[in-house]
Design a protein around this nucleic acid. Sequence first.
DNA 1: GTATAAATGGAATATTTATTCCAATCAACT
DNA 2: AGTTGATTGGAATAAATATTCCATTTATAC
Lengths: 278, 278
Amino acid sequence: MPQPPQSYRELEMLITAEYATLSKRLQQTARFMLDHPQEVALATVAKIAEQADVTPSTLIRLANSLGFKGFSEMQQLFRSRLVDELPNYTERIRAVRSATGETPDSTQLLWEFADANRAVLEQLPSRIDPASLEKALDIFEQAHAIHVMGARRSFVVASYMTYALAHVDKPALLVSGLGGMYGEQLRAMSQHDALLTISFSPYAEESQQACADAHQRGLPIVVITDSLLSPLAHFADVVFVVNEAEVKSFRGLTASLCLTQALAIGLGVRQDKRRQKQ
Amino acid sequence: MPQPPQSYRELEMLITAEYATLSKRLQQTARFMLDHPQEVALATVAKIAEQADVTPSTLIRLANSLGFKGFSEMQQLFRSRLVDELPNYTERIRAVRSATGETPDSTQLLWEFADANRAVLEQLPSRIDPASLEKALDIFEQAHAIHVMGARRSFVVASYMTYALAHVDKPALLVSGLGGMYGEQLRAMSQHDALLTISFSPYAEESQQACADAHQRGLPIVVITDSLLSPLAHFADVVFVVNEAEVKSFRGLTASLCLTQALAIGLGVRQDKRRQKQ
DNA sequence: GTATAAATGGAATATTTATTCCAATCAACT
DNA sequence: AGTTGATTGGAATAAATATTCCATTTATAC
């Protein structure tokens, strides 16, 4: 068994294939591992051994007989499983990568971007607090109009949100700074409005200013940013922290866009309900 | 700080609350941890310290100052987060759906959007022809400047592309129609430039006009659209057909953005290579 | 039933990893 | 500028964890 598996799936297959040829204790151990992969990923040899009702040595022996140098090496696969949910997909990327040689050509780039963004989307919904979502919608629903602010990279998101809000019949104003009129646009915010600011590191001065202004005037503020420690978070009534994909030191916008989409449509659904009641 | 947090969320809150009172290095460490929780969950003190660009001692100090007996104790919270948050993905969607009954609340909407967009990204790279990618990059590379056109929903994509191109040092001009100057902006296109048009059904008149103009002047044209039968396809030298997600009759933009991202960075990589040769 | 090989448990050891401690550095204040 | 206290880096140490090794048990063949 000179070639150890490279992914959790491969390991699963190998264990299944070799199971019959293993000794009694080794079978017992293998079965436990397949049944409790999460445990194996995070616990120590001693703890796992105890739970599987075998001795630590047996775990090492199993790892060795599956081709690994030691238990720790095998454990890495269990850990990687926790991190990237879909080994199938990542393998496909690896296939593309090796097929195209070293230098990343454009097709491989596309695969990498798609994969990175896909992974981000997989995690997004579970990382967003439902209560925050509801609270943000409360704020938006009660606001007469929503001012949307996003500079530089975040401008794209702000622009999309403005578009989407208009399509669910919610008055929305993009704070664009067009004609150098940031100040004027901010002064147009009334007490009955709300502000949505999107801002990522390095947080644009204009976005911070917008939040500070709105805060002073007592407007409710919703912020989409990349860290709880963002300077924007301080002013906000609701903070959404999104983790964007990064490939070749270029950050994506997929998660933010997905979130704004959900916010806009969520607002639309609410308004529909209310109108039906009346 | 006698009472350490009991859950990852509590820890998040504590860090946020105490952040301002921490020293510089401790802040740096705290930020890294919040931004890379996955890393912290699985790596060793030494590895994490290296990635966060601090010394191992700092990690332990931070753990202590947050009330933990040591780093390992704190790490347990990061690990529990990995475990609690990742049951099978599709099962969770189903769970959310059934728990909320018929009417889709905002959280379920978010799950649906994330899932739909994720599915789209999974298919995207295999549906894009590698030869078209290369051809588009050839066109962009030879162009003096790239004019980017996208109206209404596509404006977001066009806007992002312009931003991304600027960041890889490629002269890019967004055809925005600002001040009603579509005509003027189109007339500024020179023979040595290229046009990238993004347009989805119902294809905006302005986008069609832009392509027609560019075609007449002999500019190479790249089009991102939703069907080979799109009226834009007729003028194009390269056509990318992308399939966007649709939830509640609202279409996403994820695939288009991912594609533009890959195009922009792909161009950047090429330019780097060429400059290195010289 | 005995001989031989394989498998097993557990203590001993090696290795990795976390933690402590102290000297050097930095920042704040006089 | 000099002094004090906090902060930091890194080497030294302690703790934990994995691995090896060997005596003992269990299974297999004759």
